[in-house]
Simulated scan of single mutants.
Amino acid sequence: MYNKFTLQDFLNDDAFIRWALHNQQDAYWQQVLVDYPHKQEVIRQALQLIQELHRAEDKQTLLVNEERTWQRISEKTINQDPLGRWPKRRYWTTATVVSLVVVLVAGWLWVERSKSTSTYSKLVIKASEKSILIEKVNQNDTPLKISLEDGSVVYLKKNSRFSYPAHFTTKSRETFLSGEAFFQIAPNPKKPFYVYANELVTQVLGTSFDIKAFDNEQQVLVKVRTGRVSVYNQNQIRLVSDESQHLILLPNQQVVFNRQTESLSKQLVEEPIPIHPFIGNEKRYFEDVPVATVLQALEKRYDVRILYNEELLANCIITTTLSDQSLIDQLEVICQTIGATYKEMDAQLVIESSGCP
């Protein structure tokens, strides 16, 4: 894995940085030193640079001594042969040196500042005190499939990070996400599954859902595809359940956390999908039936609550066919037919009508 790692690759590796600054997973990195002896010098230089830049940031200064920095990070590496990926020093101008130093320092300080405000990073550091975590990072367009020991599967999307223990505890399954992923969780009523996605905690027993929780976006989003989840906001960096303000989400529902107002709101997803597909000769065509009969069929198919006044709609008779169109499109056709309107409230659809003659 580390055969082709350059100095910059180690500087960009979060697990390596945590080792350099907090000595996390020390046994693992000591073994890396043994397994890749030809990388020991590059690793030493990366460690030194990370630690010195961290100390410099603690002093709140961006001043860089060009000659010291050059000697520190370039003395060995730039004199390597062409396979070392760095040209010899005689090809480097003062401007090039300064540019390299500024880029490295600015990049590192940006990473450190991001980490200081990243709930994900703080949670991972805290969780690492109890057990060694595995971190997966996906920079590709194709989702990265991650299989967990309990049979659960996570599809990690582009520019996302996911951390999890190699072995879950006997009481719970705790994982950590920054970015976006789709989860298919293996059922285990005795062992709840938790996803700490920055400010939001999602607790499930067995279901499938999406989470979108990038560090730099205004909102955190959880969408449920099947099953049932509990979502709540954690005001502090801690790995304990605090469900006093939790929201229960059902299929085709989502919760949005606004980072500015620190508020949670439950909504329908933009495009509800059928949860119970048509089977065999299940009835799709309805002729001259009360509209309530069709609405009940839609409720069952999408697992979405549709509220209406049964007395007002008692005389509304329609003929229609349930299709593979979206729930919203079908509901609009029904409302137009009976002269009604609808609105969404708390992840439910409310039909408003003055009745039918």
Rank of each mutant, 00 (worst) to 15 (best):
R284S: 09
Y285H: 11
R90Y: 09
D14R: 01
Q25C: 12
Q325T: 08
T169R: 08
W29N: 08
L177G: 00
Q31I: 09
Y194C: 03
W70H: 10
L177I: 01
V291R: 00
K76T: 14
V34R: 15
N79V: 10
L295Y: 03
L49C: 09
N198P: 07
D346M: 08
R85G: 15
Q48M: 07
I73L: 12
I318A: 06
I237Q: 11
R238Y: 11
F183W: 05
H54D: 14
K158T: 01
Q48D: 14
W19A: 02
T226Y: 03
A95L: 11
A347Y: 02
I78S: 07
Y302R: 03
C316P: 02
W92E: 08
T320F: 05
L247T: 07
T226W: 07
Q45L: 15
F5C: 05
Q330S: 09
W110R: 13
S74T: 11
E299V: 04
V333K: 14
V111G: 09
R305T: 12
F214A: 01
K4P: 04
T175W: 02
E262I: 12
F16C: 07
T175N: 01
D215S: 09
N3P: 11
I317T: 06
Q8H: 09
S74P: 06
L250M: 15
K171G: 02
T170P: 00
Q267A: 14
R89S: 14
V240P: 02
T117I: 14
I351C: 08
V111H: 11
L148S: 03
T142C: 12
F278T: 10
Y91E: 09
D14Q: 06
I125V: 11
N315G: 05
T319Y: 10
M1D: 09
Q48Y: 05
S147D: 15
N23Q: 14
E180Y: 04
T321L: 10
N281A: 06
Q253C: 12
D13W: 05
L264Y: 06
L144T: 01
T94A: 08
V32K: 02
I237V: 13
S172E: 10
V42D: 00
F168Y: 11
Q139T: 14
Y120T: 00
A297I: 04
R259N: 10
V224M: 06
Q31K: 14
W92N: 04
Q245A: 15
L47D: 00
E243R: 10
T117W: 10
S163I: 03
